[in-house]
């Protein structure tokens, strides 16, 4: 397993971890802005979170392309099946979170449903936490 895991792109995974941590900061700042009644700032912070989501998905797509080109497809072995299942499901949750944040942002811009910023934020942070464990599991811990 170790040799297989060494073929994942650690720099790309590290950058994606940084991007998701940054998106979590933006999301929590959006919640704080709502708490202070600054809906414009909250709206901007949510757009930055969505932008981070796009960057994450772009890097993930690049990784998938690189791995498939090297023959590491989802049927290349147990590790790769696990890798694609876990990262694919995680990416779907990121995508869902981006749509949810976009919907909440539209409502907040009209001054409605501001409480939902906290709810969608908790979801987004959870997606971040899942990646915090997937990154060492798939990119770091099994490089030896």
């Amino acid at each position: 397993m170790g040799k297989l895991a060494a073929h994942t792109l650690t720099p790309a995974g590290a950058v994606n971890t940084f991007v998701l941590l940054t998106s979590s900061l933006c999301m929590v700042l959006a919640h704080e802005a709502v708490s202070r009644g600054n809906l414009r700032l909250a709206s901007q912070a949510m757009m930055q979170t969505i932008f981070c989501g796009f960057v994450f998905m772009g890097i993930k797509a690049f990784e998938y392309g690189h791995e498939v080109a090297q023959g590491f497809t989802p049927v290349a072995g147990l590790f790769w099946s696990f890798y694609y299942a876990m990262t694919g499901l995680h990416a779907l949750h990121v995508l869902g979170g981006m749509f949810a944040i976009l919907a909440v942002r539209k409502a907040v811009a009209r001054g409605q449903h501001v409480r939902r910023v906290e709810i969608v934020g908790i979801y987004w942070h959870f997606v971040d936490i899942v990646w915090i464990f997937l990154f060492p599991l798939l990119y770091l811990a099994s490089r030896g």
Partner: peptide, 18 residues
């Protein structure tokens, strides 16, 4: 709703945590 959101707010050093 804004008042409710305010209730859950705490002075947390978010950027330092980042």
């Amino acid at each position: 709703e804004t008042a409710a959101a305010h209730e859950t707010s705490h002075r947390v050093p978010y950027v330092r945590i980042y």
